[in-house]
């Protein structure tokens, strides 16, 4: 058995955390070959070669793969599939865009957001916003899988896998990139941060979200948000935590002004310690919080920032 793992690469830079977590999820399935795809991917490939448990790295560099549009990357992966029993990736938006397309090209189902490997054919995945865990056994010849990164530890560094350049695949010529709107930030990345401070509708405005950000900066934390906060324009979309946003499991998750809808809980209930600050003592978030503080966040959050 052998695994082809799509490395998470943005603008030529390897996302080590997401990729290394997918590697540790995959090692029990066979030798792991990492595929580094991009307009520039050589540096990312060299980085990936250092991840423990990686047997080999393939690098496909071509202008065709800039911004990793789904159609050309899926075409390449399907063309490489013959040699592998499992085709996997970390469950990032990039991979969720690409892997189901690969699966359909191979006439197999995709296993999305897998949280545990039972054996080579059997996997666990959350359904209904994490309110149930399904164990499924695949009868497909090849398994196409995205791994939920928050449930796997990152593989360490110390490997020195061989890196091999491969030719680019066909260009389906179906779509083109126009622009990215990416907010630059010095804060840790949301899905790999040790601490996350999130604000909800209770924060009330974009200006007041600064008190959430101040607490986050004091703690060296990433900033998250509920859907309501994003919909209301208090926070950018990439901060959304939940069923359809990012799934996080930090050491400490602080939720301020968030009620705790199941769709939000789906994205953070595996955090080690959860703190909830909410002025409504009946808020459902308190049912999952290790430490609940019934208070006005406009007093409690700045006071907490002050005292840390």
């Amino acid at each position: 058995m052998a695994v082809l793992l799509l490395a998470e690469i943005n603008d030529g830079v390897l996302s080590v955390d997401a990729t290394a977590k997918a590697v540790s999820a995959s090692t029990s399935l066979g030798d792991v070959t990492v595929l580094a795809v991009g307009a520039t991917a050589a540096d990312a490939a060299a980085e990936a070669a250092k991840i423990d448990g990686v047997a080999k790295v393939l690098v496909a560099e071509d202008a065709l793969y800039s911004h990793r549009l789904a159609e050309p990357v899926a075409t390449l992966m399907a063309a490489l599939a013959a040699d592998y029993s499992h085709i996997v990736a970390p469950a990032t938006t990039d991979a969720k865009n690409i892997l189901p397309r690969v699966a359909a090209l191979l006439d197999v189902m995709v296993l999305s957001d897998v949280t545990a490997v039972v054996d080579a054919d059997t996997f666990e995945r959350p359904i209904y916003a994490g309110n149930a865990i399904q164990t499924v056994k695949s009868s497909d010849a090849k398994k196409v899988i995205t791994f939920r990164t928050s449930t796997f530890d990152a593989a360490g560094e110390g490997g020195s896998a061989a890196v091999e350049t491969i030719a680019a695949g066909d260009n389906p010529g179906l779509s083109e990139w126009v622009e990215d709107k990416v907010a630059e930030s010095d804060r840790p990345e949301l899905t790999s941060a040790k601490i996350v401070v999130s604000g909800g509708r209770g924060v009330g405005s974009e200006e007041d979200f600064a008190i959430i950000e101040k607490l986050a900066d004091k703690l060296g934390a990433a900033v998250g948000a509920s859907r309501a906060a994003v919909d209301s324009g208090f926070a950018p979309n990439d901060w959304q935590v939940g069923q359809t946003g990012k799934v996080v499991a930090p050491e400490l998750y602080i939720a301020a002004g968030i009620s705790g809808a199941i769709q939000h809980l789906a994205g953070m209930k595996d955090s080690k310690i959860i703190v909830a600050i909410n002025k409504d003592e009946e808020a459902p978030i308190f049912q999952v919080a290790d430490f609940g503080l019934v208070a006005d966040l406009f007093e409690a959050v700045p006071a907490l920032t002050e005292k840390l």
Partner: peptide
């Protein structure tokens, strides 16, 4: 179906925590 559902189970439940009185 290509995926046979072997079983469906409850997710791990979180232990109820405590309320703190102050910051």
């Amino acid at each position: 179906p290509r995926l046979e559902v072997v079983k469906t189970s409850e997710p791990a439940v979180r232990q109820a925590g405590i309320k703190v009185e102050s910051v």
